[in-house]
């Protein structure tokens, strides 16, 4: 009985494995990226153009930056597209990734209630604004999920010499959209990428209070998973994607992409 069940299970898994990936004729690579990138809609324009040119399908797995890099470390995916410079450099240094390239950047904005209880509206330096928010009694809503946005929060707190803890610091542990909703309900401050903010603008009662500080720039890097570490990765195909993203064709699409009446990304390859 036991044998038969095991046999059944074995053959079932085998069946699944051949019927799954094998029935597609084109090669497909797996790209781990961040939810904010995927939610922006850019990949829906960018990747079909790449597939058309190269015949390579790209399966997008959208998770937080921390998890995306983890999937790269474990060899679960072939290439990662994320925005957390320090973590990306660690990823390459530790030998998990190769050929890191700058692809594009967008920027973060500090949002808050219209009446701005902390009085940070129009400030030029993000770190000073953060320090002021910490001093005030207003809430700050944090991603708290090791995402690229969360990394940026931590970077700014460090620059502001503030340890973000206490009742005013709400760590939500979820995606950007949820955080915006929480910040809206609590009428607190929140750091958001411009893309997600523009998508949510109509639904929430928060406005941009601080923007334009170079410290708020959000560069995206694309990294191939190291084939020396994980021989099974589709490295040649991953490299094709990276080359194409940084080529004039890819960069042009990035520059031309608009959503909710605003440009979201600026090409950065070859800078």
């Amino acid at each position: 009985m036991k044998r038969r069940v095991l046999g059944l299970l074995g053959s079932a898994i085998w069946l699944l494995s051949i019927s799954g990936p094998a029935c597609k004729k084109e090669t497909a690579i797996k790209l781990a990226t961040t939810t904010s990138t995927d939610n922006s809609g850019l990949l829906d324009v960018l990747l079909p153009a790449f597939t058309k040119e190269s015949g390579i399908q790209v399966h997008v797995i959208a998770v937080g930056t921390g998890k995306a890099l983890k999937h790269g470390e474990n060899g679960d995916v072939d290439v990662v597209l994320v925005h957390a410079r320090a973590a990306e450099e660690r990823f390459v240094q530790d030998g998990f990734g190769v050929n890191r390239r700058d692809v594009m950047y967008n920027d973060f904005v500090i949002l808050g209630p219209r009446d701005d209880p902390a009085g940070v509206g129009g400030m030029k330096e993000a770190r000073k604004a953060m320090a002021k928010i910490a001093e005030s009694t207003a809430y700050f809503v944090s991603r708290g999920d090791d995402s690229g946005t969360h990394e940026k929060e931590k970077e700014l707190w460090k620059a502001a010499k503030v340890k973000p803890s206490g009742k005013w610091h709400l760590s939500v542990g979820q995606g950007m959209g949820v955080c915006l909703t929480v910040a809206d309900e609590k009428q607190g401050y929140v750091l958001a990428d411009r893309g997600t903010y523009l998508a949510y603008r109509e639904a929430i009662d928060l406005s941009i209070l601080v923007e334009g500080d170079p410290a708020l720039f959000n560069p995206y890097g694309v990294i191939a998973v190291n084939p020396a570490k994980h021989p099974h990765v589709k490295h040649a195909e991953a490299m094709k994607l990276i080359e194409w993203l940084c080529s004039p064709a890819g960069q042009e699409i990035i520059a031309g992409f608009e959503k909710n009446g605003g440009k979201l990304f600026h090409p950065a390859a070859g800078r």
Partner: peptide, 17 residues
């Protein structure tokens, strides 16, 4: 089923299987 594990060679992760 992750690619570096026992059933890794089946390339099951992130598939309907």
């Amino acid at each position: 089923i992750r690619r570096v594990s026992l059933l890794g060679p089946l390339d099951l992760l992130f598939s309907p299987g």
